[in-house]
Structures are given as C-alpha cells and as structure tokens.
Write a protein that binds this DNA or RNA. Sequence first.
DNA 1: GACAAACACGAGTAAATGCTCGTATTTTTC
DNA 2: GAAAAATACGAGCATTTACTCGTGTTTGTC
Lengths: 202, 202
Amino acid sequence: MPEEPRRQARGQRRMVQLLDAAAVVFAEAGYAKATTNAIARQAGVSPGTLYQFYANKEALAEALAERYRSELAAAHQKAFDPGTAQLPLPELVDRMIRPMVEVNLENPGFKALFGSGDLPDKLTAPTRALQRAVTGRVAEVLAARYPELPTDRLETTAAVATQIFAALLGTIVTTPATHRERWITELNQALVGYLTPLDQRV
Amino acid sequence: MPEEPRRQARGQRRMVQLLDAAAVVFAEAGYAKATTNAIARQAGVSPGTLYQFYANKEALAEALAERYRSELAAAHQKAFDPGTAQLPLPELVDRMIRPMVEVNLENPGFKALFGSGDLPDKLTAPTRALQRAVTGRVAEVLAARYPELPTDRLETTAAVATQIFAALLGTIVTTPATHRERWITELNQALVGYLTPLDQRV
DNA sequence: GACAAACACGAGTAAATGCTCGTATTTTTC
DNA sequence: GAAAAATACGAGCATTTACTCGTGTTTGTC
C-alpha cells in the first residue's frame, strides 16, 4: 500500500484546483459522461498530474462530495439559531431550503452528485453519504420540533422531505433567475403541505 | 435515407424480445452502463441482429419509453371513470398512484428511463417525452377537479406533483414488498398535502 | 549546493463499447 | 422453384477513456 506523500503548498493548491475543475465538468456533463482528461484540461493540468493527487475518478467524486457536505453544514449552521425549530412551519421550511439552494447555485456540480439516480455503482457510496448528511440534518430539525415523534417515523419523514427537495432542486437551479422564486415557493408549499399534519397532531 | 424494411412475423417477435431484454439490462445496470452487446446477449441474439432492428442504443430507449407510455395510458384509462376527479383528495391521489406503481413493478427498467436526472444528452428526448406524458395526464385530472384554475398554475402544479412522484418511486420499488405500503402511504400524504390548499380555495 | 521528495508532463496503453460488414440462412413473392 | 427481401451471425473496427510510466523540473532539507 503506497502511502500518501507529504503535500507541499503547491500540491495543496492543485488539489483545490482539480476539485474546482471536477465540479465544473461534472456540472456540464454529469458524472457518467465526465472524463478525467477533460477535468485535467479544465484545471490546466496534464492527466498524469491529476492522478498524482487523486487515485481515480471515484476518489475525485468522493472528495468533492465531502467538500459539499461541509459547505452545507456551514450554511445550515449559519441559518440556525436555537429556537428556529419553533417558528411557523412555512418559515422553518424556508430557512431549511434557502441555504441549500444557495449552496447549489454557487456550486455547479452539486446536483450531479446529489440528485441523479442512475449513477454507476462506484459513486453510490459518496452520493449516499451526502444524502444521509442532508437527511440527518432534516431529522435533527424535525426532532427539535416534534419531540414526541417516534424515531422511525422521524426518519421516514426526513427521508421523504429530502427526496422531495432533491427532486425539485433540479428545476429550481436550471430555471432562469427571474422565475426561480416561483419554484422555490412551490417547493416550500409541497414541504409545508407534507409536514402540516404533524403540526396539527401536537 | 434507408427505408424501413417490411417486417415479417419473426422480425416483429425479435423486436419485442429485444425490448424485453433492454428493459432487463437497463434495470440492472442503468441506461448509461447498459451495453448493447449485453442486451443482445440477454435476448439470445447476436449484436448484428440487434442493429437490424434498432438503429442504435437511443432508438432502443425510445421504443422502450414508448412502450411504457402506452402501458401507462392503458393503466390509467382503466383506473379512471368520469367522476373520479370529484373523489376526496386522498382517494383521487391513490387512484393516480397505484397504477403507476404497478406498471413500475411489472416493468423493471421503467425507472431507469423515467427517474434519473443524469442521463447522457441523447436520452433526454425520450425521457422528457415520458415525463411529459405523465405530467399531461396529471394536468388533465387537475383540470377536471379545479376547472377555474389558470392554465399555467395547473401546469406548474402538475409538474411538481409528477416530480414528487418520481422522486419517491425509486424508494417504493426498491423497498421489499413487506414495507412497500408504508412508503406508498407516505407518497400519498405528500401529494395530498401539496394539493390540499387547492381544494380549500374552491 | 547536494540530495531526496514532491510535482509535472503527455504520449501511450489496455480495456470497454457502440456499431459495421461480409456472409450465410430463412421467408416471402412471383 | 428461383429471385428477392428479410433475418441472423459474430469477428472485428474505430473510438473513447480511465489510467500509467518514463522522464524532466521544482521545492524542501541538511
């Protein structure tokens, strides 16, 4: 087993650069059709160099997914002070949705890793990790709002909400900015509609 | 432009056979990773024979999508007598959902064409046609139930409902039959929740 | 400044894959 | 039953693509 070399400053910059390039190419072509050579070209670097830092395409995807995960976590942290969970449902949902949409707009390629269902087996692992991270966050918020809800019910609800979100995310980000708000509203209504029964049971 | 040969009985059987095989392979591997050679093998036929009937992989996908579209139409026709549109919302939604889930369970590969978002450009055409067909049907039902709803609002709602459906379809069909009903219920609640506000405006 | 480790290059390789083509068999047509 | 059209085969071609490797350059360490 070859051990990781001690990265020097230049190398660390390259790694970031390559991740940026991967994001662009994944966004343009989708994961399956994205070629490692194209990613290297986009980064202004030779294929050999790419492989000096990432063992293969999957490792690249994994690293990118990890980046998104942490950006998402940061965005959510920022949008959530304690007490948010007790807001009226439409506002709570809005606070969950906005940061994710924004992370998405800022990071082309997110959708390519998060959304699609037809990815080769290799990618399912990093993708599922991302999905789980999001679902987990949703579950936390739901747990804060509905403390007496049984765990399994909580998880089901979080999973469904996340999937609804993922489904509409594509439409939202590909829509021209002028009409974007409308679809966000629609997503909000869908989620509020789904969650309202829980509110009334309390 | 080479014209289509007059198919004889044997040829027509082969075409069905190949479509069946394609459905199986698409279901197992997803569209992108499915190889035409594997489809031919699955059909017990040589690659050359496959191409005697379908010009390329895309044509195969198109034909399969068309098959699904007609099966879906038939299933819906059967589930819909006039008056259904005035049923209580949960029942209406149930009547829309069931046949589609069933078509899906009977036709592995449907999801591979309908669900995923990351397909190569070539496939977007047949996929979108399928999506549009489903959305169109949903729009018809909504139009019957909410006659005074403006057209664009109708279409937006139908599109969102269809996407929610598509998102949860994957989970529903991959879940073991024992727990399937639970996810169907969840999908039902999501859609009912989304549509309820429309009901109350009347 | 010398030595090693990390970085960089890019032509090239092996494997995969959509698809072709020459040829042979079966079915239809007359 | 003979010519034509349709069906069938499967080896293999052309292309794509993830990845390698030999070689040269830059950076860090002593």
